[in-house]
Simulated scan of single mutants.
Amino acid sequence: MPVTTTEAKNRFGHVCAQAKTAPVIVEKDGRPDSVIVFYADDLALTTAAPTRTLAQRRKAFNEAHQEWLAEQNRDFEQNSLWCDRLVVWQGQG
């Protein structure tokens, strides 16, 4: 349910009641700016997805994309960087 910032300010109690059934999108200058959600929903969202460290995310990425990474590494070993073969064009003058 989208509401304007003015409506959210003037009818805050009503907006909070609406947020218990569905997130309320607060628009500023006609664009989505903020979201008001029911506290229990926010708590469920933040506790459901535990935060992972950068090392954990990197490990998961490497495991999920190991074939692609190996292909890229093979290509690099065989051909070096794609830009290494570029030559500056010099026009006839």
Rank of each mutant, 00 (worst) to 15 (best):
A48D: 12
V26W: 01
A44T: 12
F12W: 13
K9I: 14
V35D: 05
A19Y: 06
M1I: 14
K9W: 15
R52K: 14
N62D: 13
V88Q: 03
E7W: 04
T21M: 03
F76Q: 07
N79M: 08
R11T: 10
G91D: 02
V15W: 01
V37L: 07
Q56G: 02
P2N: 14
V35N: 06
F12C: 04
K59M: 10
E27L: 09
Q18F: 10
H65Y: 15
F61H: 08
D75Y: 12
L45S: 15
V15E: 01
A60D: 14
Q66W: 13
W89S: 00
W82V: 06
R85E: 06
A8S: 04
I25G: 01
Q18M: 13
E7N: 09
H14I: 11
T21E: 02
A44D: 09
A49F: 12
V87N: 00
M1R: 13
Q72A: 15
T5A: 09
A70C: 06
P23I: 05
R11Q: 15
Q78P: 02
R74Y: 13
A64K: 13
V15H: 00
N79D: 06
E67L: 04
P50T: 10
Q18A: 09
W89C: 01
L43S: 11
P23Q: 03
L69K: 05
Q66P: 01
Q18S: 06
V15K: 01
D84I: 02
L54H: 10
A70G: 10
A44N: 06
D41K: 07
A19V: 07
D75K: 11
C83H: 02
V88C: 00
L45Y: 15
R31T: 03
P32Q: 07
Q66I: 05
R57A: 08
R11K: 14
K59T: 10
T21G: 03
Q92G: 00
A55N: 10
L69S: 04
S34M: 10
Q56K: 08
Q18H: 08
L69N: 03
V26P: 01
T6I: 12
W68H: 11
G93H: 07
D41S: 11
V26H: 00
G30K: 03
A17E: 14
I25L: 06
E63R: 09
N73T: 07
T21Y: 04
A22F: 08
G13F: 15
A8C: 12
A19S: 12
F12Q: 04
F61N: 04
A49W: 11
Q66N: 11
Q72P: 01
A19N: 05
R31H: 02
D84M: 06
T21F: 05
T47D: 09
T21I: 05
H65S: 10
L45P: 03
Q92A: 04
D41C: 08
L54Y: 11
H14L: 13
L43H: 12
V35R: 08
